[in-house]
């Protein structure tokens, strides 16, 4: 099977605003792909195109081999929108029933119970949505996205309203999905979260992808610190492979070396650098 999601020279204009400007990337099967970028960068526009909610102005998007927005594509998709609401007059369990019917899931009571359990909402199964807190609704939204065992899960800031415990639950959930070979396309502003769970990350800026790779590769070239008798020396652009040469040179210069370490930048550093490099 091919990629779970493909974007090919995707562009989108909202009247005069160019929200996406030739975006190319792929999410492989079973891959957890994180999309980062400042407010208004085009992340939500991109995933909405993937769900068929927004029509691209140019290029194309595919979900599991089917053109985005078709029934075949939507049948393999689970989506949690950035801003969403469920009818307040339905209970949590009934929301899942509705989505089971809409997605032709035959999971029945068991699937619903499992999903509610997964996001720690079992006790609220019979509560109406209108009586739930924002975070509880977001949990329900995540459960809803998982109805019908989608092959691709598109989550647009799924943890924005969650408490720390809730975030951890989602992180564990994402790890578990990876085990089940479910692909995930995740929009998030929580860099530490993305760093922890994503296989690959793209940084999108003003509608273009400016940087893409594994979190490790993005952080690579993060510098070397050497502790010598005359203090700590920094080599900010050095990579791990250069360490022997650096040590040789320092020793040749007569320094005594106590410790050598590679300094790892966080994804946040990489992100801010990329964003400020382009806009600042």
């Amino acid at each position: 099977m091919g990629a779970a999601f493909v974007a090919e020279s995707l562009s989108k204009n909202y009247k005069s605003v160019r929200a996406l400007d030739g975006v190319n990337f792929e999410v492989a099967e079973g891959e957890l792909f994180g999309l980062l970028g400042p407010n208004g960068a085009g992340k939500s526009t991109l995933v909405k195109i993937g769900c068929g909610l927004v029509h691209p102005s140019g290029g194309r998007a595919e979900v599991c081999g089917a053109p985005a927005g078709t029934r075949a594509a939507n049948a393999r998709l689970g989506y949690l929108a950035e801003l969403f609401r469920f009818p307040g007059w339905l209970t949590a369990d009934e929301v899942l029933v509705l989505h089971q019917r809409l997605s032709d899931s035959d999971g029945g009571t068991r699937e619903r119970a499992e999903l509610l359990e997964l996001i720690d909402l079992s006790r609220a199964a019979d509560r109406r949505v209108e009586t739930m807190s924002k975070g509880m609704q977001q949990r329900l939204g995540i459960a809803q996205a998982l109805v019908g065992s989608p092959r691709l899960l598109i989550l647009d800031e799924p943890t924005s309203a969650l408490d720390p415990a809730g975030r951890r639950i989602i992180r564990a959930l994402l790890e578990e999905l990876k085990g089940r070979r479910v692909s995930v396309l995740l929009n998030s502003h929580l860099l530490s979260e993305v760093e922890l769970v994503c296989d690959r990350v793209a940084i999108i800026l003003a509608g273009r992808i400016v940087s893409e790779g594994t979190p490790d590769s993005l952080r690579a070239g993060s510098g070397v610190e050497v502790e010598t008798d005359s203090g700590v020396k920094h080599f900010p652009d050095a990579v791990r492979d250069e360490i022997p040469a650096i040590v040789d040179r320092l020793v040749a210069d007569g320094a005594r070396i106590y410790e050598v370490r590679t300094t790892r930048r966080s994804l946040e550093d990489v992100y801010l650098e990329a964003v400020e490099g382009q806009t600042g």
Binding site: G52, L53, Y79, A81, F84, R85, F86, L102, Q144
Partner: peptide, 14 residues
């Protein structure tokens, strides 16, 4: 605009 519609239309129904 309320976000009520998106979860439903994204299902395979057209």
């Amino acid at each position: 605009e309320q976000g009520l519609l998106q979860p439903v239309v994204v299902r395979p129904l057209g």
